[in-house]
């Protein structure tokens, strides 16, 4: 008898970002794992009604899973649910579109497979939870998530001192390509000039200052969302498909 070959199984926690149909009854999952970054895996037979873990592998679910490292794609062998957000999120159309924009952003920011992205993972898990539990307005959760996810990816915007020359703020002009708020001398012509309250709200969303963000005015939330969307699209370069479908409450 030869020595046993080491079985290539590993275990990790993950958020299901996207699912695609494969063949007759399988799905390819895009997962953001805690320790292994983005992983593509095959879930066999999950589209059959007799599947034991089809329900656990729905988008937005936080799961504990065991994977078999295959040649191209890994194969899901066992799954346990940690947080089944799917139901709460798909039961509210606004939450569903918001959560979709978040997972698409996460997918985009962790595009290099197997590059650990634990901070992105933890941020996404937290954002999905507060969305599903309706702790804050969904548009605030989305904007805060986008700003913080971009900050982790290295594109932290500034909302007080000038993004270009560090001149202490507050300043009025917002320019996405320059990295946030800029001072009057750095300001290019045609820059957006949001209300000071909007700039304050953006700072709170980036810092996670919820007491301040929660009492913000609807008008400033709308303006902030527009700026966050512009900032996100600029830095992600390609269009986020789901962002235009987001329904803001």
């Amino acid at each position: 008898m030869g020595e046993n070959v080491r079985v290539k199984l590993y275990r990790d926690e993950a958020v299901v970002l996207r699912t695609r149909k494969l063949g007759e009854a399988d799905r390819i999952l895009t997962l953001l794992t805690r320790a292994h970054g983005q992983v593509h895996a095959v879930a066999k037979g999950v589209r059959r009604t007799s599947s034991k873990f089809g329900a656990r592998l729905e988008p937005f679910s936080v799961i504990d899973l065991q994977l078999y490292a295959g040649r191209n794609l890994d194969v899901v062998t066992q799954v346990d649910t940690l947080a089944p957000h799917g139901r709460a999120i798909s039961g509210d159309y606004g939450l569903f579109t918001t959560a979709t924009a978040m997972v698409e952003t996460a997918e985009r920011l962790t595009e290099i497979e197997r590059e650990p992205a634990t901070q992105q993972y933890l941020l996404l898990v937290g954002a999905l939870r507060s969305l599903a539990e309706k702790v804050h307005a969904s548009s605030l959760v989305l904007d805060s998530y986008l700003l913080r996810a971009l900050a982790i990816a290295g594109w932290a915007p500034t909302f007080s001192e000038c993004a270009r020359c560090d001149a202490p703020g507050p300043h009025r002009a917002f320019v996405a390509p320059m990295g946030g708020i800029v001072c009057p001398s750095c300001r290019p012509p045609g820059a957006a000039a949001p209300a000071p309250e909007t700039v304050g709200l953006l700072g709170s969303l980036l810092a996670g200052d919820w007491p301040h963000a929660d009492i913000s005015h609807e008008r400033h939330r709308k303006e902030a969302s527009g700026l966050v969307a512009a900032y996100t699209q600029w830095h992600l370069e390609r269009q986020l498909k789901s962002l235009r479908h987001v329904e803001r409450a």
Partner: peptide
């Protein structure tokens, strides 16, 4: 999830 969201 997609089917449920469509139903909603």
């Amino acid at each position: 999830v997609e089917g449920e969201a469509t139903a909603t």
